[in-house]
């Protein structure tokens, strides 16, 4: 017969564990986020430099007949700002072991992400810009990379949500959720750069 008491599981001469250096995932995420930010800054910088050169030559930047509306981009910006609140809500909920709130917050964040993709699709469809122009190439590249970053952030959040569901993250360890939140906020920053550089200042 097996007789196990919880105290017996602890050896009498237990060695105090050497304090681990946690936050490997968090550190890696911050570094990866920095790389993504630099890449997008490079793209925006290239776009701004080319636009400035064309304007300095006395021409307009956008081709004739192309109008970038403000309604959709502003709604998208609003969606992204809301998603920051929802992802921080998720971190807070996991930190408090409040699973119901955590699932709701993860779900809402992902819904915001999906809605951002749909809104981008709609915006691109009404832009009606022929791809064989330099402006279109630059703008579509900026939009495409932004959506790719958002997709990566959604995958990260989904992975954190699944790991929370199976008990991987809780109040004791919510590093992965915090890392996902950092990457999500980066994705919002990337959209903010696109919104200002392309949609607002055109």
């Amino acid at each position: 017969m097996t007789d196990i008491s919880p105290f017996d599981a602890i050896p009498e001469e237990a060695v105090a564990p050497i304090p681990a250096r946690p936050r490997v995932l968090l550190t890696g995420t911050v570094l990866a986020a920095a790389a993504v930010a630099i890449a997008y800054a490079g793209l925006v910088g290239h776009y701004a430099a080319r636009r400035s050169e064309v304007r300095a030559g006395g021409e307009t930047w956008l081709p004739d007949g192309v109008v970038i509306p403000l309604t959709q981009p502003n709604y998208m910006m609003f969606t992204m700002v809301l998603s920051i609140i929802s992802i921080l809500w998720a971190v807070h909920a996991v930190k408090l072991n409040d699973r119901t709130n955590a699932y709701s917050a993860f779900g809402l964040t992902l819904v915001f992400g999906v809605s951002q993709i749909f809104q981008t699709y709609f915006l691109v469809s009404i832009l009606d810009m022929a791809p064989e122009t330099e402006q279109a190439t630059l703008i579509y590249t900026l939009i495409g990379v932004q959506i790719a970053v958002l997709g990566a952030a959604m995958a990260f959040v989904a992975a954190a949500a699944i790991r929370t569901m199976i008990g991987g993250y809780s109040s004791r360890d919510y590093e992965g959720v915090a890392a996902a939140a950092i990457f999500w906020i980066l994705a919002v920053g990337v959209y903010t750069a696109l919104w200002y550089a392309v949609y607002i200042t055109k």
């Binding site: 790389a35 993504v36 630099i38 890449a39 997008y40 800054a41 490079g42 793209l43 290239h46 190439t137 630059l138 590249t141 495409g144 990379v145």
Partner: peptide, 11 residues
């Protein structure tokens, strides 16, 4: 610095 090269390659 390398991400800038990736950006240029995307373009």
């Amino acid at each position: 610095s390398l991400p800038v090269m990736i950006a240029e390659l995307a373009l």
